[in-house]
């Protein structure tokens, strides 16, 4: 067990955990930030996507000990009141079905648009390929990303 001070969603959080614990379980079990989802544990589904200094990463493969002073943003911290352009676009297109993967999809999309404000279809496919949606909302997600890009 070790103590870590993590910068999550703009504030400092002290966590007492085994250094190998993936950030995913620190967020969910220790900090009650359950918007970041568990889907596979091997970085194949994207449900646990968070931002590490603005880059989309899979929290299930990020040991807490490796986070250091990096800035972590989770779905809960993406915007103050759910009004990030990507969140608004998701609501405008009523994207979710079961909704379980959508936090991860939104985090991947937000990171994409941060670095590439006008992505092509190919850019979107490349950035989003790592996020599975078992309900098959892919076509709506693409539309929502384009709406967010244009907003």
């Amino acid at each position: 067990m070790s103590t870590f001070t993590l910068n999550i969603n703009g504030s400092q959080h002290e966590v007492h955990a085994d250094p190998t614990t993936p950030l995913l379980w620190v967020l969910r079990d220790h900090l009650d930030l359950v918007g970041t989802k568990y889907g596979c544990g091997i970085a194949q589904c994207g449900a646990c996507t968070v931002h590490l200094n603005g880059t989309a990463v899979r929290a299930c493969q990020l040991p807490v000990a490796s986070v250091g002073t990096s800035k972590i943003t989770t779905i809960e911290g993406l915007s103050e009141s759910g009004d990030h352009p990507v969140q608004k676009a998701w609501l405008a297109h009523d994207v979710p079905q079961c909704g379980y993967c959508q936090a991860g999809q939104i985090m991947s999309a937000a990171a994409l648009l941060e670095n590439n404000p006008n992505p092509s279809d190919e850019d979107i496919d490349a950035a989003m390929r790592g996020n599975l949606c078992r309900c098959g909302t892919y076509t709506r997600i693409k539309k929502a990303i384009k709406t967010a890009a244009n907003s």
């Binding site: 918007g35 970041t36 969140q87 609501l91 936090a103």
Partner: peptide
Amino acid sequence: KNVDGSKIVTGKPLY
């Protein structure tokens, strides 16, 4: 609209 839509896109506990 999906009545849980805003909770889903903001990561509220639902599941």
